[in-house]
Design a protein around this nucleic acid. Sequence first.
DNA 1: GCTACTTCAGTGATAAAGTCACATTCAACT
DNA 2: AGTTGAATGTGACTTTATCACTGAAGTAGC
Lengths: 211, 211
Amino acid sequence: MARHSILDSLSDTLRKETLEKARAMTFPAGQILFSAGQHCQGLPLVVDGRVKVQMTGASGHSIVLYRMENDDICTLSIGCLMTGRAYRAEAVVEDGAEALMIPRGAFDRLMDQSAGFRLGIMESYGRRLDDLMLLVEEVAFRRMDKRLEEWLLARGALGPVMITHQELAVELGTAREVVSRLLKELERRDMVRLSRGKIEVTGLLESPPPA
Amino acid sequence: MARHSILDSLSDTLRKETLEKARAMTFPAGQILFSAGQHCQGLPLVVDGRVKVQMTGASGHSIVLYRMENDDICTLSIGCLMTGRAYRAEAVVEDGAEALMIPRGAFDRLMDQSAGFRLGIMESYGRRLDDLMLLVEEVAFRRMDKRLEEWLLARGALGPVMITHQELAVELGTAREVVSRLLKELERRDMVRLSRGKIEVTGLLESPPPA
DNA sequence: GCTACTTCAGTGATAAAGTCACATTCAACT
DNA sequence: AGTTGAATGTGACTTTATCACTGAAGTAGC
């Protein structure tokens, strides 16, 4: 059943009222929650699954900005909801997701009535800003080979990763060729095993954490 | 006198109460409002002047994330205030700034009492997220020479810019040598005139806006 | 003035990353 | 088995980053 921790702090009446106005929705993997240029219809509270948020530059290149998982709030939607501006990014469901869509009116009411809800929203915003700041630093200053290794460690530690080089390039915000070459080099060093659409991490060692 | 547009939406009593609890502060150019690792003392409403927010990577390189000017709200502080985490970035006053520092309690009260205040905060957050998303795209995909030319156009259109190559490198998140070389090339093409700590834009043309 | 010192700027050599163009390989489906 | 389209490999070249310097311009003290 659709359940989001930010609703826990609400009084019973307010929660009931909110759940009445909210729509529970499920999305299959691959579905696009919203895309750039669209306008916001309501605030999605992610209850289950995984959604990646990515943007595409003028050049046509894309980069994954962050992911939303269960108990997350689509902070991006708040801004669009409040200011009426269009989304600048795109949200793609990765693992079939479930979300509660809170309409504008109910959101306003929650912000007005519940300090706990406000806190949850603010925390969520803070985390997102932090994520994006870290991403800026990462993209601006860190080396691609290290970033790739780190990504592989995080995602491939417990089994093969099913992903194409092109998709991996979008994860890191680089070009497919760069990913292919770096992966080939890792394979030469026996740190990964490559096959079509699949990467097995075999010998990547956790590097010493940056001091 | 210290005045911030977000206070306009408040009732007279609430505004009076807030102004009583807030502290008006002035900061000379060069002063550091907060730096990475520090904890947040209150929410600064920027009333006058200009403050740049930048972060420094593990490599020691820095990049300017965004600027706050009059009527801005230091969104970064909200997250730190609400979650108790430390700042990840640094804020440096560029033009002597004036700010109203709103303590935590008064902030909570404003969020509770004023829909207008809430809207202002949410808009501010939305804008910041947008800024950062655009910055990610810029850093990840755009060419340095174009970014430099754009920066020079924006900042140097109405007179010489007093800035060192090192500072300009931080603006763009690159290395000083890169800026020096690109500037030299622009000088060769008679588009700028260079001297120590100063750049005069002479012949840069507004490029056709990206379609 | 002149000298010592510091900050700022210029530059060659080299490595990493991005771009362009195309070849090859693999898997799925007639 | 052959065709097709997506995924991957790679060479050549450009742009950007890094390292290691050199030189030039301002500043303070004598």
